[in-house]
Simulated scan of single mutants.
Amino acid sequence: SYCVPKATLLAGCARHCGIPARIGLADVRNHLSTPRLLELLKSDVFAMHGYTEFYLNERWVKVTPAFNQQLCELFNVAPLEFDGIND
């Protein structure tokens, strides 16, 4: 799927585990755009990219489930590390 349903599912999972979570939407520049994708979208900006925020250690922390392991492998990029404390 794409970022919005993934962010929704992640927020729901976090809430189920007792972690306050909310959805965020933002326009983001895609630094991994391929020439074909740029041609199709006519832009390197993804409008309304979905992400999740967790409330951890008295602050909101942005997380994104959009690029999972399989997608990172497909695009040959390393997944971002997240430990919930130093991010």
Rank of each mutant, 00 (worst) to 15 (best):
R22F: 06
L37R: 03
L71N: 02
E58K: 13
R29D: 12
P65E: 10
V28P: 10
R59Q: 14
I19K: 03
E73A: 07
V45P: 03
N68A: 05
I23M: 11
I23H: 06
F46R: 13
E58G: 09
K42E: 13
N76A: 05
A14W: 02
K62L: 12
C3W: 01
F82Q: 09
V77N: 08
E53Q: 15
Q69S: 08
E73L: 04
L9F: 01
P5L: 00
W60V: 10
A47K: 15
N30H: 09
D27Q: 06
P35G: 10
L10S: 03
R22E: 07
L74S: 03
E39T: 14
K6H: 00
V45N: 04
R59L: 08
E53Y: 13
E58W: 05
N76W: 00
D83I: 09
C72W: 09
S43R: 07
F75C: 04
A21E: 05
V4P: 00
E39P: 03
H49Q: 14
A66E: 15
L38H: 06
H31L: 13
E53I: 14
L56S: 13
E39D: 15
L37N: 01
F54I: 11
F67L: 14
D44S: 07
R15M: 05
L56F: 12
R29K: 13
A11T: 02
D27P: 04
